[in-house]
């Protein structure tokens, strides 16, 4: 049995940014996910609605998250995702795991993944599937030098 505050063996929590890019006022899904990730032991920064690619990248940089989750239900993913990935690269954030969810048509998934999005979680995805994916793929906070 491990003690809850066993400092020596403690793992630093993974930090995740959940963002809602663009003109999309529906964030119930994002909130359900934020809650599930909290319950899975992650530290989840939620940006709220109507974020520009620049705002998302800037938040990811300042918060130094290891994972970004983009939730989008507006259909504008092929416009916004390339801009977001560009803004992230521009800030040197190429080691961040980016995942996406919402209403992204199956036909678009290869193109979205081609941008560097690691996984796309469509409607009906089990929360545990998302949690497991992040657990397995989130990079450790990388050293400074």
């Amino acid at each position: 049995m491990t003690e809850p505050d066993d400092f020596e063996n403690r793992i630093s929590p993974v930090r995740i940014l959940i963002a809602k890019p663009g003109l999309d006022g529906h964030d119930r899904g994002a909130k359900v996910l934020v809650r599930a990730l909290r319950d899975a032991g992650f530290e989840v920064v939620y940006t709220g609605l109507f974020q520009t690619p620049e705002m998302i990248a800037s938040a990811a940089l300042q918060e130094d998250v290891q994972v970004i989750g983009l939730s989008i239900l507006s259909g504008a993913h092929m416009t916004l995702f390339p801009q977001i990935m560009q803004e992230l690269k521009g800030r040197g954030l190429d080691d961040v795991l980016v995942v996406a969810g919402g209403t992204i048509p199956k036909a678009d998934i290869p193109a979205v993944k081609g941008l560097g999005v690691a996984e796309v979680f469509g409607p009906g995805t089990r929360l545990s599937e998302i949690v497991d994916f992040i657990r397995q793929n989130a990079p450790a906070p990388s050293p400074l030098w």
């Binding site: 929590p13 809650r35 990730l37 909290r38 920064v45 940006t47 709220g48 974020q51 800037s58 918060e63």
Partner: peptide
């Protein structure tokens, strides 16, 4: 769970 929801940033969106 040891997790947390960090939601203060929402109010500071303008400054992102």
């Amino acid at each position: 769970s040891g997790g947390a929801v960090l939601g203060d940033r929402i109010r500071m969106m303008e400054q992102h």
